[in-house]
Structures are given as structure tokens and as C-alpha cells.
């Protein structure tokens, strides 16, 4: 029983990363109809940024947790204005290619400066112990990640449901043409939303630095699963992406513990295939009209 709870807890921790990344992808896709292939690279930049800040400027984990998401959000907004926006009028393939190419460029820039070898990043001292959760001890840092990620998701949820910005974003996500028809200037919110999504990826990256290998390819490995998560949750569904994120984390963790390795390895994609067969729009997605 204890073992099962521990695996569940770990699944939720992995799920927290998926949820944060999928959430960013979902809001960007919802508002811009852009599949942001560079999301993994922004996650990597978040983690690398934290490393560089610590190694070269002595900036602590806590400051990195604040500065990197903001910095990356600004970078994202700049990018949206400069390129993504302009390509938006063309075939979606252009933005697809742009974000994919950007991923390669960002990876190689980091690689050329810091190499492919993983860079060291220690857990902040305040979070390096373990917490007694009654039935078992659990590393403090993992508890922190879980609490923090849930808090961020809840905050986003609150913003979307209780603020005017949130209403516009939700409306524009679900019925973009109709929202415009009501005379709401959707375009004004596109840039901040893109920046916000990128910022979330950066946040996930900073959180990952103490427990994952920090190297230029760290995002490339993870993003494949995150795309599966987004598809399972339903493209553009904000709630779906978060729910699927935590869900896939659980499924993976249980799979590793209780399923044969060959199944555990492909479980995410088995789930994705099953969901697509039964509900082609994803668990929480809505079929889009042919228009």
C-alpha cells in the first residue's frame, strides 16, 4: 500500500511537469492556432538559464524561479510580434516550420557555448531534506514541486474564470470568429498569451533543474510526451491539458512499477492511440467545425 502511494505521489510529480508544459501549449494553441514546437526548447532555456544565473552570477534558485519565467515571457512576446504574428496569416505549416527551426537553433546555440554534457545544478539547501508524510518520507523538493505546480495551475484557472482577460482568452480559444464578431479585440491579447505560455515552459524548466539532467537536449526528449499529453487532453482544452498532464504522470509511474518494461515504455502512446480511437478530439476537447 505504501509502495502504491509512493508511486502515485511520484506520478503526480512527473505529471506536474507535463501539466505545466501542456498548459502553456494549450493556451498558445487555443489563442493562436499555433502548435509551438519550440516549447521544449523554452523549457530547456528555463533550466539552462537557472544554471547560468547560478554558476556565473551566483543568483539563487528562488530568484531564478522568478526571473527566468519573466525573461522568457518577454522573449516569447518579442518572438510573437516579430515572427509568429506575421506568419499567422499564412498556412499553419509556416509557423510549424518556424518553431521547429527555432528549436534547432536554440539547442545549437546552447550546445556551442556549454556543450552537450549535462551541467550540475544542486537542489536549494532549504528544500534538500525529506518530509514525513505519515506513511512514508518523501523528498522535500518533490513535495515543493507538486504544491507549486498545483498552485500555478489553480492560479491560471482562477485568472481564466474570474478576470476579464480570462473570459476573453476562453472565448477566443473556443470560438475565435464569434468572439471577434462581438467586437472584442482578440489580437491585443495574442502577444501576452504567447509570452505567458513560453513563461510557463521556462518555469517548468527552472523547477526541473535540480532533479533532471540539464543539457541542451533535455526539452527535446520531454516534449514528445507533452505533445501526446496535449492530444489526449484535447488540443486547445485548458482543463484537459492539465488533467491529462497529471493523468499521464500517474499512468507512467504505475506502469513502471507494475507493468512489464516493454509496456511501460510505450504506455503513453498506447493511451494516446486508445483515446484517439474513442474520442478523436481528446478527452476534454471539442470537435471543431469543418470551417
Amino acid at each position: 500500500m505504501t509502495g502504491f502511494l509512493q508511486n502515485t505521489f511520484n506520478g503526480l510529480v512527473s505529471g506536474a511537469f507535463y501539466a505545466l508544459l501542456a498548459l502553456g501549449l494549450a493556451v498558445i494553441f487555443g489563442m493562436l492556432r499555433v502548435v509551438n514546437f519550440a516549447h521544449g526548447a523554452f523549457y530547456m532555456l528555463g533550466a539552462f538559464g537557472a544554471y547560468v544565473l547560478l554558476a556565473e552570477a551566483g543568483v539563487s534558485f528562488w530568484w531564478a524561479l522568478l526571473l527566468m519565467p519573466i525573461g522568457l515571457a518577454l522573449f516569447g512576446m518579442l518572438l510573437e510580434r516579430a515572427v509568429v504574428h506575421r506568419l499567422g496569416r499564412l498556412d499553419p505549416l509556416y509557423n510549424f516550420l518556424f518553431t521547429f527551426g527555432l528549436t534547432l537553433i536554440l539547442q545549437d546555440v546552447v550546445k556551442s557555448r556549454y556543450g552537450v554534457q549535462s551541467s550540475p545544478y544542486a537542489t536549494p539547501a532549504e528544500l534538500s531534506g525529506s518530509v514525513d508524510l505519515g506513511l512514508f518520507d518523501f523528498p522535500t523538493y518533490r513535495v515543493f514541486i507538486l504544491v507549486f505546480a498545483v498552485a500555478v495551475c489553480a492560479l491560471v484557472w482562477w485568472l481564466l474564470s474570474h478576470t476579464r482577460v480570462g473570459v476573453v482568452v476562453r472565448a477566443a480559444t473556443e470560438r475565435p470568429e464569434l468572439t471577434r464578431a462581438f467586437g472584442i479585440d482578440v489580437g491585443r491579447w495574442v502577444t501576452p498569451v504567447f509570452g505567458f505560455g513560453v513563461g510557463l515552459a521556462g518555469l517548468a524548466g527552472v523547477l526541473a533543474a535540480p532533479m533532471r539532467a540539464v543539457n541542451p537536449l533535455m526539452g527535446a526528449d520531454l516534449i514528445i510526451v507533452v505533445f501526446a499529453v496535449v492530444v489526449i487532453g484535447g488540443l486547445g482544452s485548458i482543463f484537459g491539458s492539465v488533467a491529462a498532464g497529471f493523468g499521464i504522470g500517474l499512468v507512467q509511474s504505475w506502469g513502471e512499477a507494475y507493468a512489464p518494461p516493454i509496456v511501460a515504455q510505450t504506455l503513453v502512446f498506447i493511451v494516446m492511440a486508445a483515446v484517439l480511437l474513442l474520442r478523436p478530439a481528446g478527452l476534454f476537447g471539442r470537435e471543431e467545425s469543418a470551417a
Binding site: G3, N7, N10, S14, D221, I224, E256
Partner: peptide
Amino acid sequence: PFPNTSGDYSTYLL
């Protein structure tokens, strides 16, 4: 799993 896309080894470590 290889490659271990989740990057997580806690199942074995626990």
C-alpha cells in the same frame, strides 16, 4: 524504459 522520456527513476529508487 529506454529512452526514459519521463526522466524519472523514483519507482526503482523507492
